[in-house]
Design a protein around this nucleic acid. Structure first.
Length: 567
RNA sequence: GGGUUCGUGGCGCAGACUGGACAGCGCGGCGGCCUCCUAAGUCGUAGGUCGGGGGUUCGAAUCCCCCCGAACCCGCCA
């Protein structure tokens, strides 16, 4: 039936029939409802995400990346794609060499601190020592040249690093003194780091042992954190292996060198991005309104830079998938564009077309700016701990009848669910300001709200037993507005999932789950299920509850959030 | 300085690409609902010049231009 008004067409649905069809489809589909089964020869997609530098623990910004990337992968998989999740380990960067140098001076590791946190500390101390040394030299030079005002500005920077150093020292004097003293005592720490990196790229045994040793340790910490957060990878790609030692970066540079777009200036090799844009008419395609600076492919000392190695890595990934989605923060917008331009320069516009930079905004902290180099960040581990602790308080006060073990189990999945939901539900192009109260809320518009609706549905079903399943359901009994709304919501789930996958908007699944939970709560408060007199009407309502339970669980699964049956 | 993105009630968000039914939701405020399937729920109420100003349109939070504010980028870092 149709009716029109104010330029809109309203549809009315044959509820009993539609209800029957929807509920049967949900129950028949079970865990698969809302999912498109993967097919032989389906699109292979690599989602590269997290890829935190192995020099400090994953902080709250990396957590946003990990959670968005993980949800994206889950949703794409649900829509039928053959998804592989990759973590790119940037072990060929300057920062890793720097952390490794400091680590070699630390005089052993601390057993009482998670290893990636210890590495982060050592890296920050090393970075302080190096920055202070070079800034002080700069100040001397400026003073000698009579540039007093510039010297004053530099002194201000020195003060900032001195403050960072004092803060670090207060955390662990022994390690600080060992690392800071040793690094400051080096005649030319920056040169030493550059040489270490060169030796690593040349795959010299000692350098490999040092850098790999550090990376392996840090990554073992990452794995622990990520596992707890429900984030998993199919592949851990060492930059050294997929871009450097395998000759990939060298080959990419050579191939680019053979094109008309590369030139050498003062020993550095540059890709003329503007020339690429002009040649292939890409200005409009990529909405480029300003001059794109040249991409430096090779340093004057012969080593490669991150984006150069990323070209090689991208080609490597395209050997394994048709589409690549890189979850990388908005800060790297320009290098990601330059990466595409490099593909064009190599004569592979088809690859550029299927390379997606899924960018997300940074996580801010009220009051200060995070800085790995200064050792200032909120670690993902600490966020998870705090979330679970708060959830435990909540569970204990709301469900004191549950056993201690069960309260702990529920606290874990509620706390972590809350963090995941908070991270994925905000559109990724919006900056996120981190505050505990905001991220760890357990009310509506949060994972616990959805989990609670799920637990309620489970509870009704648990009390109903199994006998109703043998009863012929009378779907015409589902006549209230609450029931109709619920049926409509359930029926739209598969479409919502495929839309979210197409538009790469995991937050849409989060919003759907919240809406469904809300719709179910209205039903719950207004329609008594177990008290329904007529057995066939009761069976229909129980089928509706069962279907809701299934869809809530499936939606939560796509967000990597567990669905408890009690809480 | 140039570019990109964002600016929606006290706070946090959705809606914007594909312009249309009173701009939705949560937190916080105020006032209700547990002899009834878990109140992490729910109902009611107050609170909005959709940053500001022009324009396009029958119609603009949504499209265009200008301005203001914030974030990010413009490195032989990643």
């Amino acid at each position: 039936m149709l009716s029109a008004g104010a330029g809109y067409v309203n549809f009315y649905i044959n509820v009993p029939e539609f209800g029957r069809a929807t509920l049967e489809a949900v129950v028949r589909g079970g865990e698969g409802y809302g999912r498109t089964p993967g097919q032989e020869g389906g699109e292979r997609v690599i989602v590269e995400h997290t890829s935190v530098n192995p020099i400090h623990p994953i902080h709250i910004g990396g957590a946003r990346n990990a959670i968005i990337g993980d949800c994206l992968a889950r949703i794409l998989k649900a829509s039928g794609a053959d998804v592989m999740r990759h973590f790119y380990i940037d072990d060929v960067g300057l920062q890793v060499a720097q952390a490794s140098l400091g680590f070699s001076k630390a005089g052993g590791i601390r057993q009482d601190l998670k290893i990636d946190h210890f590495v982060g500390f050592v890296y920050a101390v090393t970075s302080c020592a190096i920055n202070l040394k070079s800034l002080k030299r700069e100040v001397e030079r400026l003073k000698a040249e009579g540039k007093d005002q510039e010297a004053v500005d530099k002194i201000r920077e020195v003060d900032d690093w001195v403050a960072a150093a004092a803060d670090l020292r207060s955390r662990d004097e022994k390690t600080f003194d060992a690392v800071f003293g040793a690094v400051s005592g080096l005649e030319d720490p920056e040169g030493e780091i550059a040489r270490l990196l060169q030796r690593y790229e040349a795959r010299e045994e000692e350098a490999v042992g040092l850098i790999r040793g550090l990376c392996e340790r840090t990554i073992s910490g990452f794995r622990e954190t990520l596992k707890r957060a429900g984030v998993f990878f199919d592949s851990w790609d060492w930059e050294s292996e997929v871009a450097s030692w395998n000759g990939g970066a060298k080959e990419a540079v050579e191939r680019l060198e053979a094109t008309e777009f590369v030139r050498v200036e003062e020993g550095t090799m540059l890709l003329d991005c503007e020339a690429v844009i002009e040649k292939f008419g890409l200005r409009e395609k990529y909405a480029i309104r300003t001059e794109v600076p040249p991409l430096i492919l090779r340093r004057s000392d012969g080593t490669t830079l991150y984006t150069t190695r990323d070209i090689a890595y991208t080609l490597w990934k395209f050997g394994r998938a048709e589409r690549i989605i890189n979850v990388i923060s908005i800060e790297q917008k320009l290098p990601q564009l330059q990466l595409k331009l490099a593909l064009h320069a190599l004569g592979r516009p088809d690859l550029a077309e299927r390379l997606v930079h899924f960018s997300y905004e940074l996580v801010h902290l009220p009051g200060y700016k995070m800085s790995g180099r200064r050792g200032r960040y909120v670690a993902f581990d600490d966020v998870l701990d705090e979330a679970v602790a708060r959830a435990y308080q909540e569970v204990s006060s709301k469900s004191p009848h549950l056993s201690e073990a069960e309260r702990q189990r529920i606290a874990e999945l509620v706390g972590i669910g809350a963090v995941r939901y908070a991270m994925v539900s905000v559109a990724s192009h919006k900056p996120l300001t981190f505050t505990w109260d905001r991220v760890l809320n357990f009310e509506r518009n949060s994972a616990p709200f959805i989990q609670y609706a799920h637990a309620r549905s489970c509870n009704i079903l648990a009390k109903a037993g199994e006998s109703w399943r043998g009863t012929q359901a009378e779907y015409s009994a589902l006549s209230s507005a609450y029931e109709k709304a619920l049926i409509v919501s359930l029926s739209t789930f598969p479409e919502r999932v495929s839309d979210a996958a197409k538009s790469l908007k995991p937050e849409d699944v989060a919003a759907y789950a919240n809406d469904l939970a809300s719709t179910f709560n209205l039903f719950y408060d207004n329609v008594p299920v177990l008290k329904t007199e007529d057995a066939r009407a009761k069976a229909a309502r129980l089928a509706l509850v069962d279907a809701t339970r299934i869809v809530l669980a499936n939606a939560l699964a796509m967000l990597g959030i567990e669905a408890p049956s009690r809480m």
